[in-house]
Write a protein that binds this DNA or RNA. Sequence first.
DNA 1: TCAAAAGTGTTCTTGATACACCCATGC
DNA 2: GCATGGGTGTATCAAGAACACTTTTGA
Lengths: 231, 231
Amino acid sequence: MAFTYEYPHPAVAVDIALYTVTGELQNLRLQVLLIARKEKPFRGQWALPGGFVRIHEDLPNAALRELAEDTGVRDVYLEQVGAVGTPDRDTRERVITIVYVGLVAGDKHPATPAGSATEVRWFDVNAQPPLAFDHAELLQMGLAHLRRRVGEAPVCFELLPEEFTLSELQTLTETILGTRLDRRNFRRKVQELGFLRPVRGGRREGKHRPAQLYRFVPRAYPKHAERGVPF
Amino acid sequence: MAFTYEYPHPAVAVDIALYTVTGELQNLRLQVLLIARKEKPFRGQWALPGGFVRIHEDLPNAALRELAEDTGVRDVYLEQVGAVGTPDRDTRERVITIVYVGLVAGDKHPATPAGSATEVRWFDVNAQPPLAFDHAELLQMGLAHLRRRVGEAPVCFELLPEEFTLSELQTLTETILGTRLDRRNFRRKVQELGFLRPVRGGRREGKHRPAQLYRFVPRAYPKHAERGVPF
DNA sequence: TCAAAAGTGTTCTTGATACACCCATGC
DNA sequence: GCATGGGTGTATCAAGAACACTTTTGA
């Protein structure tokens, strides 16, 4: 089957920079989900999951679908970062891509290769392999967007179990931002946001003093109504 | 001539929300440049200037070209706002559009209809006609982007003559933001930004007390290196 | 002398930062 | 009893918001 047009059309793709945080609590690492490409060009190279937008499909849905097809990861919250359309960024034909970014708990969303991927892996953002196309740039755009959002309101709903301690939330945030934060300031700020409710009697037992457990209460506070609560 | 693909391709367009400020100093109005459409669909209706991206053309260039073709306005600074691709937003075929926003002095950039426009006019943002497609939404996106940027650094290089008074800059900024600003706070803030240099001996004569004239000195100050100076 | 816009400082509040000690528990 | 992480309050600073009077000019 073929599709003809009176004038040439670019292809439109979505690419998804999906981030997670993994590792021991004392050694968390920010990682991004990459796929090994099954097809030319750049066959075998690592790239962002993504692919072409279907003709009757909304952009956000295309991003979700492509992510799911390539990696098996579904039901995630994505935000649009922007469009990139440098003419020669793809060697096959003109491809304009819309970049989306997301943040998930890797263990809640196990990744298995499919679609245009022969392999799927989480890579430390500081230790990326060479990437296909201009995906290194796209990834930087995504990371900048993510950090901006998490900096505004350091509440990462996706990444924690239902009940978590403030220290867990803090180290997580620090990992995403790539900076250390003052503990007291962090706790004050995050409590003022009003999204947390302490769990009565809930304490996390550890080798040492137990910590209070909290839950997210994603109420729509005026401050954040504008952009919604990030991730 | 026809162009054939193995799978269907959406069309990709750019739409430009170009704003200006006009009127008497005591009655400035924020306006947006609209065109009357020459072709179906929505023939005769008002719409944002814009059109399809050429196959070997970068997105920013497409935006500049389409703006120039439809309205005659060229050499403006545009920023990307984002991509919109709701499947049925265009009745002809699937069209994904990338929205750009800009801010110019209307009198430096006279607009004359051409290309896909039979007419070009500046409309008050508070008194828009019904718009074709989803352009009312696109326009809102553009306006929000513009206001965010001008709020960060209220320095509108484009809109003023080479020499201008602080009051002029302020009323201009107020018009764009749609709010009133405190005069003393405004003057302090804008002077701290470091982009202004007083003109020695330059005074604007009026019916009343003459005002000091300033010029923009768009030096790259660290605070604004990140996003550049807005407009 | 009056009308109209230009010009100017200080106070207050808020949010961000920096910083140090005691507490509860497991070992 | 000590090592480990949990928990807390205050002082400082910077940025933003609120606010009123004097100055200069033309009419």
